[in-house]
Amino acid sequence: MQLPYSLDVYRASMAAYNADWLPLVLLAWLLAVFASLLALYPRDHAGHWASRFVVGYLAAVWLWIGAIHQLGFMTELNFMAPIYGMAWIGQGLLLAWSGLYLGTVRFDFRASRPGAPAKVLTLFGLVIYPLVLLLLGHDWKSLPVVGTAPNPTAIFTVGLLLASRDRPPVLLFIVPLAWAGVVGATAYMLEHRIDYAASITIVIAASLAVHGRFKRSTATGN
């Protein structure tokens, strides 16, 4: 089985995408840093605005990546991109509805501290993933980064969800898990090994989220 494009074509196209949207690429990454600080190191006085900002940011970037990266950019290269685009938009809407409207995703130091997995995954998506690509010889102009590229954004998202105060709804992990499958298959077809790590981290995060859910239920006797 093969993808309809090669790795060097994908990198050249990512370089063009990053160049076209450079101010937004930088802004989205900086906002990701801010969001991760709010989520991983929440403060009492921050109130709900911090949680809403984080979830709102996540919803916005999933919508962006669905509409612009997949539907607008990858559709030229990959006949599956329209389907992926719709899934990413769906996840963005789900985050907005579940996280913002229903308020199911909150970050609050009083209830619980984000564990190491949340911090490691968030850091992996934000910094380690693009850094490893750079060290492997990837051109910096084509680096995929959180906020505008799917793989690091998916890792970053599941990391932040693990840091939430309450049990994150399992529903919010369905699309990221499906994306982990896509990433794994792409890693195989393009022989792009770091994406095996990307795929595995998303699966681990989803497993931890479900496991954490189970453990909390047992502790309260439900």
Binding site: Q2, Y5, V9, E76, L77
Partner: peptide, 8 residues
Amino acid sequence: ITFNVGAS
């Protein structure tokens, strides 16, 4: 694959 090079 070979001619699917996008806008580059």
